[in-house]
């Protein structure tokens, strides 16, 4: 009976050890999957941001303003800068 006791103690100990190690490996896999997803999402986000910055480039903005909105470029003397706003 004593041996059965030792056996059970070993069993519990070994089970904990195995579950820890397997947990590490499994979460490692999950982490790397998540990292992958994060990387993809970041890349997508970056693409969108780059698209924004492409669209907001001076050239695009000027072109749009002049062609679609019929705006004209201001001459510097027409600009009024209020005190303290600059």
């Amino acid at each position: 009976m004593k041996y059965v006791g030792w056996l059970l103690i070993f069993f519990v100990f070994a089970f904990i050890m195995i579950s820890i190690h397997i947990g590490i490996a499994r979460s490692g896999r999950v982490i790397s999957q998540l990292q992958n997803e994060v990387a993809i999402k970041e890349a997508r986000n970056q693409y969108e941001e780059l698209e924004i910055s492409r669209l907001s480039s001076p050239q695009e903005v000027t072109q749009f303003a002049e062609q679609n909105l019929g705006m004209v470029e201001v001459k510097p003397h027409q600009v009024i800068v209020l005190e303290g706003t600059k």
């Binding site: 470029e73 201001v74 001459k75 510097p76 027409q78 600009v79 800068v81 600059k86």
Partner: peptide, 10 residues
Amino acid sequence: AEPLLAMQGV
């Protein structure tokens, strides 16, 4: 120079 001056509000 013109748009630069306008931009900087000189």
